[in-house]
């Protein structure tokens, strides 16, 4: 009886794994197939040979290069500045006294959860008014509205759960606030900061709707917009699209291999733990 039940669970896990991994496998393998093989009426589960031609096409025929560079610039700039700003904000909320302090965590969480599809037309109008449409500067101005609330919220919950003895001791020794933040809090909070940094990066890296409405220009767009624009052709170039989808997933896969624990904390927003 007990053994039977165990087999049922193993079977369940096998089904889940197959369902999860097959689409990822299929996309990766398609990206290495030749044109003929991609559109063959009888798809091959394992291709005869692995080719780079789809990747080459992606950069030469679909000018993916600029988009990739834009995405890297936007995501890393926003992620790094988010971490610095959120570190200060979370410190202020959890360690300093000021009126309205109690509602700050709520405010940040609310700002994170509000659906982007409510805000995307207003944001478009706002950027149009200040002349930042069609440029990655516009995106860099807007993306922190997604990343800062998230990162600050996670860091606030983290700071509220850490003891302050070290900081108090340092204060007695006459350390300034800047020293306390960078010499004491920063090293202790590093794991938490790394995971929020990673997650902020991936939020920008995969962002779609703001990028879609803000940017039209071929040389200013990000990877998500560049790839989705390839979907409107008469014959959809699935080989190159798969290559693009793989590149889009690559940084996340890499980070995932080395720090899946960090990512998982990021994905549950640190709040849903208990």
């Amino acid at each position: 009886m007990k053994k039977n039940r165990n087999i049922v669970w193993k079977f369940t896990i096998a089904i889940f794994l197959l369902g999860t991994m097959f689409p990822i496998y299929w996309m990766s393998i398609t990206s290495f197939k030749s044109f003929q093989e991609v559109y063959n009426l009888i798809p091959k589960l394992i291709p005869d040979q692995l080719l780079w031609s789809n990747y080459v096409d992606l950069f030469t025929r679909y000018s993916f290069g600029p988009a990739l560079i834009n995405s890297i610039i936007v995501s890393s700039t926003v992620a790094v500045s988010t971490i610095v700003i959120s570190l200060y904000c979370a410190y202020a909320v959890s360690r300093m006294k000021f009126p309205g302090k109690e509602i700050m965590p709520q405010l940040f969480l609310m700002a994170y959860l509000i659906p982007r599809t409510i805000l995307f037309i207003p944001i478009y109008l706002l950027l149009a008014r200040i002349g930042l449409l069609n440029s990655i500067w516009g995106l860099m101005l807007v993306y922190p509205t997604i990343t800062i609330p998230y990162a600050t919220w996670v860091l606030i919950t983290y700071f509220q759960g850490t003891p302050r003895e070290l900081e108090e001791a340092a204060e007695v020794d006459g350390a300034t606030r800047r020293q306390i933040i960078w010499k004491i809090i920063f090293p202790i909070a590093k794991p938490s900061l790394v995971s929020t940094l990673i997650f902020s990066f991936t939020l920008c890296w995969s962002e779609y709707i703001y990028a879609l409405v803000v940017i039209n220009d071929k040389y200013q767009r990000t990877i998500t917009v560049a790839l989705s624009s390839m979907l409107v052709a008469d014959i959809i170039p699935w080989g190159s699209l798969s290559a693009g989808a793989v590149i889009c997933a690559l940084p996340i896969m890499i980070v995932y291999m080395f720090a899946s624990k960090h990512i998982v904390t990021g994905l549950t927003m640190g709040s849903v733990k208990g």
């Binding site: 689409p23 299929w26 995969s206 779609y208 998500t224 790839l227 699209l241 889009c248 996340i252 995932y256």
Partner: peptide, 10 residues
């Protein structure tokens, strides 16, 4: 964890 775009395309 994957970008929505990647999963939708696949």
């Amino acid at each position: 964890a994957l970008p929505t775009l990647t999963s939708v395309l696949s």
